[in-house]
Each structure stands twice: as structure tokens, then as C-alpha cells.
């Protein structure tokens, strides 16, 4: 399974409004009235001419398909709207959101994965969502992950963080955005068009100040280990709300030169648990 999410919000929003108008029209003109008119007419003929029309298979097919169309159009509208909202408000992933997504995707592998996660109550659902979806990245090294992320494509945006130093699961994916959307955002934030944007998937719905006890990542940080990309570690820090300060990290791991700043394009609604001063952190190390 490909571990990427591609979403074009403006197209999705447009489709949602079209589906909304389709639903309104369907609800105002009862779709099954076409079937009912034929059924009534055939009943009259049968009454007068002694059950001349006996085969009702096609009529039943029409009726069933009309109802399916009604139901699926409504459901498609609801699901699309929820999904659009879900990916816009990534920091607000809740169990309800996962349930909704699971229902939406129920007929394919994503739905099955989501459903299997739901049965395991001991796992934090939102965290597991990303762990399961991106589980094939468990064995990838940090370098490999960095290679994946060092794309020049304006449209491919890596989400999440790679924490590969100790083989800890990292949530890595990509969000493909429509160019206009990004250019508008770029203008607003004064960014260049060829910069890479990072989306962070919040796989933990706890506050940033909470620490996860017995968490592998926390243990890894506490024990001395070779310095990896400072960016990844810092992202991991934010991600899991680690209490370690930057000075503590620097003293342990060695200084990192942050003089070259990469303008990080992260639309506000997608940034999660970031302080303002951290927005301008460089990404050079990450993409070397």
C-alpha cells in the first residue's frame, strides 16, 4: 500500500458543493416517482387485461437502483465533506473522525486497517492510524526517508516526521496540493514557489506538554546516541511533547548551524503544536 495522501482541497470543495446541489434537487423531486408512475400504469393495465404484465424483474431493478443512487449520493457528499474537513484540521483527529473515515473507506484495505485498529483498545487510535498506514516505513533508515523527502516537486509535500535513528516508527507521507492553493498561501506567507512544504500529521491527540510514558522515542532520547538530523529530532520533540530543551539537546548532541533558513511553508491550520519562533527553523539538514 502506497503511504501517501493526495488531496486537492479546492477541487474537493467544488465537488462537495456540486454534490450538495444534486442532493437538494434529488430530495425536492422524489427520484422514485418515475418508477411509481410506471408501476401505477402497469397495475391499471393488468387490472383491465387480466395480468398481462407478469414479469416485474426490470421494474424492481429500476426501483432498487433509484434508491441506491439516492443513498450513495447522500453518503458520498457526507463522506467527502468529512474527509475534506479531516485533512484540513489535522490537529483535531479524534476517535470519531477515525470511525467516520473507517465507514467511508470500509470497502477497501484502508477501511479494513482502520477497523482492525479500532478493535485494539489499548492503542491510541489516532497515533495508530499513522503507525499502521505508514508501517512499511519501520525498517527504512533515516537516509532513505530523507531521500524520499528531498523532492523538488512543488506538489509533493512530506507530512510528519522521520525518526529513524533507532528504528522507531516514523509517520511519513505526502500531501499533494493544488498549485493555486499553495501559491496563494505562498503569497500570503511571503514564500518562494520552489520551497518544500511540510505537513505534520498529529498522530497523538494528547497535548504537547504531555509525555508518553514507556514510549520508545522518549527512551531513545534519554540514552546517548549518534546525532541524526537535528530537524527530525526537533520535530520529534514537538511531536511527542518532549520536555527536553534545545540547550540540553545541543549540549548532548553537538551544535547545529541554523544560519541558513528555509522558509517553511505550512498553512496555519495545518501546523500542529508549533511555537511561533520554531516556524522559521531551517530544513537544510533534513534534505541533505
Amino acid at each position: 500500500m502506497d503511504n501517501k495522501v493526495y488531496i486537492d482541497h479546492s477541487k474537493l470543495t467544488n465537488s462537495i458543493s456540486i454534490l450538495d446541489s444534486i442532493n437538494n434537487t434529488i430530495n425536492s423531486v422524489d427520484l422514485t416517482s418515475f418508477y411509481e408512475n410506471i408501476e401505477e400504469y402497469m397495475k391499471e393495465i393488468n387490472y383491465k387485461h387480466d395480468e398481462v404484465f407478469t414479469n416485474k424483474e426490470e421494474l424492481n431493478n429500476i426501483y432498487n437502483n433509484l434508491n441506491i443512487i439516492k443513498r450513495k449520493t447522500n453518503s458520498l457528499y457526507d463522506s467527502l465533506e468529512k474527509t475534506n474537513q479531516y485533512f484540513i484540521n489535522l490537529e483535531e483527529v479524534t476517535e470519531e473522525t477515525v470511525n467516520s473515515l473507517s465507514d467511508f473507506y470500509k470497502e477497501n484495505d484502508i477501511g479494513k486497517s482502520l477497523k482492525s485498529l479500532k478493535t485494539n483498545n489499548s492503542i491510541d487510535l489516532t497515533k495508530s492510524l499513522n503507525m499502521e498506514l505508514y508501517s512499511s516505513n519501520k525498517e527504512k533508515s533515516n537516509q532513505q526517508v530523507e531521500k524520499e523527502l528531498s523532492t523538488d516537486s512543488i506538489d509533493t509535500v512530506p507530512i510528519g516526521i522521520a525518526i529513524g535513528a533507532t528504528g522507531i516508527i516514523g509517520s511519513v507521507g505526502a500531501v499533494v496540493l493544488n498549485e493555486k492553493f499553495e501559491k496563494d498561501k505562498a503569497k500570503h506567507h511571503g514564500r518562494k514557489d520552489n520551497t518544500v512544504k511540510i505537513y505534520r500529521v498529529h498522530s497523538n491527540n494528547k497535548s504537547k506538554n504531555e509525555t508518553l510514558e514507556n514510549d520508545d522515542y522518549t527512551k531513545a532520547l534519554e540514552s546517548p546516541q549518534p546525532y541524526v538530523a537535528s530537524r527530525t529530532r526537533r520535530e520529534a520533540e514537538k511531536y511527542y511533547g518532549n520536555d527536553l530543551t534545545q540547550e540540553a539537546l545541543n549540549s548532548r548532541m553537538g551544535k547545529v548551524d541554523y544560519s541558513t533558513e528555509l522558509q517553511d511553508i505550512v498553512p496555519e491550520q495545518k501546523e500542529i503544536n508549533l511555537d511561533d519562533e520554531e516556524e522559521k527553523e531551517p530544513l537544510d539538514d533534513f534534505y541533505e
Partner: peptide, 11 residues
């Protein structure tokens, strides 16, 4: 292309 999750596009 507009919406694709893990290779699937349920919509």
C-alpha cells in the same frame, strides 16, 4: 488525482 489515500480513491 484529487483525493487518493494509500493508492485508493473511495470517492
Amino acid at each position: 488525482d484529487a483525493f487518493n489515500v494509500g493508492g485508493y480513491s473511495p470517492s
